[in-house]
Amino acid sequence: MTATVTYCTILTTNYLPKAMTLADSLRRHENGAGLKVLFSDVARDEDLPDVEGVECVSTASLGLSAREVQQLAMIYELVELATAVKPLLLKHLLDTTEAAVYLDPDTYLTSPMVELLPELEASEGGILLTPHFLKPERPDAKMGESHMLAVGIFNLGFCAVDRRAIDFLDWWWGHLSLECLYEPLAGLFVDQKWVDIGSTLFAARSLRHTGYNVGVGNLPERPLAADADGYYNSSNGERLRLFHFHAFDSRHPEKLSMRFEHSSRDDLAEDSAIRALCAEYAEILSAHERSLPAPPPYPYANDSRGRHISRRLRRAYRQELPTRGHELPSPFVAAEAVAYDEWRRSAWKSVSKSFVGDTAKTARWLLPEEYDRVRKRFPKLAGRMSSKFSGGDGMWG
């Protein structure tokens, strides 16, 4: 018996054209399958856009109160928020489907994912993940093994779970509810690094088919070619299933990524499979971009008075949230603007401590010998910095 599967993605409104392109590819290759789209920047269902071909949901569907969503939107920046709610969405979907598959909005199917359900069923914990790399690092790798130490082993642009994964999703949300941070100094890369731990604790399975989550980073180990049936890995013949476009601009289809310069000129030659895939994707994506109005600004970038909310101010709010959550005024509610102003003025101490703490961490890493000499010469000062400027996470004592 075939399990029921729901495909989903999470985005802010400016990424909607990419999600519509993903939805087109799902319908084409997965027997008309639909795509559920969670808008992390839309708090109420009545404010959702009307989009043909996708099912749109707001953060009201996550089982959080409006206040809890506002708090998440305050402590996290845009990408952090969108990745933090991933386990909540997946768990919500498992109430009505046997398996849920998360796909980043900038992924694109090129053939049916026939291996997906058998591989998920074979996993001990009901969790299926795609590692960034499946082979030892090549000399021409754009993002190698040392990069994985910073961002995590798995690319969470893909994640499949079934109902056996409920405990894993609860554990994952237990961290992401407060610790879905892009904080290189703390060894955190939003949702991904946590799954390095969770994959072992909850018996996840690595999908070792080389056609899934292919992108600019792992192309050296997964060279693409094309034939009458589509795209495939020319080194082993496995068909391309899912391609992940990182920082792709439909106005420049001759470039695989606007962020990473690809290392092989042959891949982007006019007659190459990659160039053909980029052109195919760009044509569909640009049509959706033209069909939609300009997206609204991100609603959680500024407070109710229109002031930009800095990263350090968000971190100060986050530090107080566990103990003062019910007292903290929301920056996004006009009726609480005066109370928020008062908190904002008082937060400068936390902001200053955070800045000095990060400076001390950086010095400790980049100038260890000099840092050690200062610590030995001024032990009381070093002790105060260690205790006061540990970041509030107990990670740097």
Rank of each mutant, 00 (worst) to 15 (best):
Leu72Thr: 10
Ala382Phe: 00
Ser310Arg: 14
Ile75Pro: 02
Gly397Glu: 08
Leu116Trp: 09
Trp172Gln: 11
Leu129His: 01
Val338Glu: 06
Leu11Phe: 01
Asp196Arg: 13
Ala294Tyr: 07
Gly230Arg: 02
Leu93His: 10
Ala287Phe: 01
Val333Glu: 08
Glu68Ser: 13
Leu134Gln: 07
Leu285Gln: 11
Ala282Val: 11
Leu35Val: 03
Glu336Val: 04
Ala301Trp: 11
Phe168Val: 04
Leu48Ser: 15
Ser58Asp: 14
Pro17Cys: 09
Thr359Lys: 08
Lys36Pro: 00
Ser123Arg: 02
His288Leu: 02
Pro223Thr: 12
Glu119Gly: 05
Leu89Pro: 00
Ser199Ala: 11
Asp140Ala: 14
Glu77Thr: 02
Lys142Leu: 15
Lys376Ile: 00
Leu188Ser: 09
Gly325Met: 01
Trp172Val: 04
Glu124Cys: 09
Glu46Leu: 11
Ser206Pro: 00
Tyr15Lys: 02
Arg375Val: 12
Glu77Met: 04
Asp393Leu: 11
Glu98Ser: 08
Lys91Met: 10
Phe202Tyr: 14
Glu124Asn: 14
Pro136Tyr: 02
Gly325Glu: 11
Cys8Met: 01
Val79Ala: 08
Ser61Thr: 05
Thr96Ser: 13
His244Ala: 06
Glu98Tyr: 03
Phe378Ala: 15
Phe243Arg: 09
Asn236Ser: 12
Met395Val: 10
Leu128Ile: 03
Gly325His: 10
Arg163Ser: 15
Lys91Gln: 05
Ala141Glu: 06
Ser250Met: 01
Leu207Phe: 13
Pro322Ala: 04
Ala186Thr: 03
Ala334Val: 13
Asn31Phe: 06
Asp41Pro: 09
Leu367Ala: 06
Ala337Trp: 15
Lys86Thr: 04
Val54Asn: 07
Ser387Asn: 13
Ile309Tyr: 14
Gln71His: 11
Phe378Met: 03
Gly306Cys: 13
Ala33Val: 07
Asn236Ile: 01
Glu119Met: 03
Ala165His: 04
Lys380Arg: 02
Glu137Cys: 12
Leu90Tyr: 00
Ser235Ile: 11
His244Asp: 10
Val333Tyr: 08
Pro184Asp: 01
